[in-house]
Computed example of a mutant assay.
Amino acid sequence: MTIATLASAPKAAGSTVIAEARPKILLVDDRWENLLATEKVLKSLQADIFKASSGNEALSLVLRHDFAIVLLDVQMPEMDGFETAVLMQEHESMAGVPIIFVTAISKEDKYASQAAAIGAVDYIFKPINPDILKSKVKVYLDLYVQREQILHLNATLSQSNEELERFAYICSHDMQEPVRMMNAFAGLLSETSEETLDEGGRRYLNFILDNARRMQKMISDILTFSRVGREDILLETVDCGAILDEILSEFEDAIQGSYAEIVYDPLPSVETSSTLIRVLFQNLIGNALKFQNGSRPPKITVAATPEGRFWRFSVRDNGIGIDESFRTRIFTIFQRLHRKEDYPGTGIGLSTCRKFIQLCGGEIDFTSAPGQGSTFYFTLPRKEGRSHEAV
Results as ranks from 00 to 15, higher is better:
92 E>R: 13
37 A>T: 10
220 S>D: 14
135 S>F: 08
146 Q>S: 12
21 A>F: 01
81 G>K: 03
63 L>K: 15
54 S>Q: 03
240 C>L: 05
93 S>A: 13
26 L>V: 01
92 E>H: 11
118 I>Q: 09
272 T>L: 08
361 G>D: 02
31 R>A: 14
389 E>C: 14
21 A>R: 11
389 E>G: 15
302 V>M: 04
155 A>T: 10
22 R>S: 12
160 S>D: 09
239 D>V: 10
107 K>F: 08
151 L>E: 10
243 I>F: 06
244 L>K: 05
291 F>S: 05
124 I>A: 01
158 S>W: 06
72 L>T: 00
198 D>H: 04
92 E>Q: 12
224 T>P: 09
89 Q>E: 11
387 S>D: 12
314 S>F: 04
86 V>M: 12
122 D>G: 06
350 L>D: 02
256 Q>V: 13
266 P>I: 05
57 E>A: 13
99 I>M: 04
174 D>L: 08
12 A>P: 11
352 T>W: 00
69 I>F: 03
18 I>S: 11
333 I>L: 09
9 A>I: 02
323 D>F: 01
240 C>V: 07
44 S>W: 02
229 G>P: 03
389 E>N: 15
55 G>H: 00
78 E>W: 00
136 K>H: 02
48 D>R: 05
235 L>I: 08
158 S>G: 15
358 Q>D: 12
389 E>T: 15
268 P>Q: 14
54 S>F: 00
62 V>G: 01
213 R>G: 06
147 R>I: 02
218 M>D: 13
133 L>D: 04
88 M>H: 02
52 A>P: 01
58 A>N: 03
266 P>T: 09
54 S>I: 01
389 E>Q: 15
243 I>T: 10
15 S>I: 04
249 S>Q: 15
279 V>C: 11
373 G>C: 00
172 S>H: 02
234 L>Q: 15
